[in-house]
C-alpha cells in the first residue's frame, strides 16, 4: 500500500528536531525508516508529520574512547564496519550481522532499533547485556537512561513523546570478559524466535548478564541463571535449573512458532550461549 497523507520535515539540528517534536501535532521521529516506513506503507502507522533526523550532522558520529558513543543517525552497517567496534565490542558486530539483510542495515540505525524496542530485535538485548546508556533530549533537558531502565515492554521504552534519543554509549568491556550472542530465527536475517546475549566476568561475577529476547516483552535478564552461574566455572548448566527458568517465560504463539517451541529454543540457546561465553573468558 501507499502512505496516508503526511508531512515530511528534515530537521537541521537536534534543537530543530526537538522544537518540531514539541508542537503537539502527531509527529514521529524518522531515523533509518526500516521499521517506520513498513508500518507507514501498511498504514499501521499514520502520523501527521515525520521528522527526519537522519541528516543531522551532530548525530552522525561514532566516537571511540574509554567507551563507544554511537550517534542517533549512525547506521547499523557503519557500526558493524568500524574496526574498533569489531575489536573491542565484538558482540555488537555479531548481533548486527543478524539484522535483516545488508540494504536494511545500510539505512537502519542502532539508536532507532533501541527506540523501537521490537521484542524480537537483537540490539535492545545487546544494550542490556553490555550495560549501555541511552542519552535523550527534549525541551526539558538531557537525560542519561541506563539500558536496564530504558526498555519497558513490547515496543515501549521510557522515552517521552517529545524526547529524542541522541546517542547510546557502550562502556569498555571488562578485561577477560567472556561474551556470546546466539539466536534462532526461521531464516538468516529474520527477526529472532529466541535469542540470548551473555556476558561473563572473571573478577566480578555479580556483573554477569544473561539476557534473552524474542520470548517475552523485550530484553529480559534470566536472573535465575545469572545467580546460578555466579559461583561456578562449570560451562554446562544444570538441566533442572534450565527447566525451572524456562517455566518462568510466557511468550505468545505466533505464525512461526508456538509458545512451547519458543521456550524450548530459548532454553537451548541459553545453554549454548553460556558455554560459548565461558569458552571466551580469559
Amino acid at each position: 500500500m501507499k502512505p496516508r497523507a503526511l508531512d515530511y520535515v528534515r530537521a537541521r539540528s537536534i534543537d530543530h528536531a526537538i522544537e518540531l517534536l514539541s508542537t503537539g501535532a502527531d509527529a514521529r521521529v524518522l531515523a533509518g525508516g526500516q521499521s517506520m516506513m513498513p508500518a507507514i506503507n501498511m498504514r499501521l502507522a499514520s502520523p501527521d508529520v515525520l521528522i527526519d533526523i537522519g541528516r543531522i550532522d551532530e548525530l552522525r558520529s561514532i566516537e571511540v574512547g574509554s567507551h563507544l558513543r554511537i550517534g542517533a543517525a549512525v547506521t547499523q552497517a557503519e557500526v558493524a564496519g568500524h574496526p574498533d567496534v569489531l575489536h573491542r565490542w565484538p558482540m555488537l558486530t555479531a548481533a548486527i550481522a543478524q539484522i535483516g539483510q545488508p540494504p536494511i542495515r545500510n539505512r537502519g540505525t542502532v539508536c532507532g532499533s533501541l527506540a523501537h524496542n521490537d521484542p524480537q530485535a537483537e540490539l535492545p538485548a545487546v544494550a542490556v547485556a553490555l550495560e549501555a546508556v541511552v542519552t535523550s533530549q527534549s525541551r526539558r533537558g538531557t537525560r542519561s537512561i541506563p539500558a536496564d531502565e530504558f526498555f519497558r515492554g513490547t515496543f515501549t521504552t521510557s522515552l517521552e513523546d517529545d524526547e529524542i534519543v541522541t546517542a547510546v554509549d557502550f562502556p569498555e568491556p571488562a578485561l577477560g570478559q567472556g561474551w556470546a550472542f546466539q539466536e534462532f530465527s526461521q531464516q538468516p536475517g529474520d527477526l529472532a524466535t529466541a535469542g540470548a546475549a551473555v556476558v561473563l566476568n572473571r573478577r566480578e561475577a555479580a556483573a554477569n548478564r544473561v539476557v534473552v529476547f524474542g520470548v517475552g516483552v523485550g530484553p529480559t535478564r534470566a536472573t535465575l541463571i545469572e545467580e546460578a552461574i555466579r559461583y561456578t566455572t562449570d560451562p554446562s548448566l544444570d538441566p533442572q535449573l534450565v527447566d525451572r527458568w524456562g517455566a518462568t517465560l510466557s511468550p505468545f504463539d505466533d505464525a512461526h512458532a508456538s509458545a512451547h517451541t519458543k521456550v524450548q529454543h530459548a532454553k537451548q540457546i541459553v545453554v549454548r550461549a553460556v558455554a560459548e561465553a565461558r569458552g571466551r573468558m580469559s
Binding site: 515530511y8 525508516g33 516506513m37 513498513p38 506503507n41 501498511m42 535483516g100 545500510n106
Partner: peptide
Amino acid sequence: CEQGSCGACTVLLDDVPIRSCLLL
C-alpha cells in the same frame, strides 16, 4: 512488497544499496 523484504526495489543511494520502497 513495499515493506523492505523482497529486494526488488533495491537501488544505490550514493553508491550504497538500499530499499527504495522505504525512502520518501
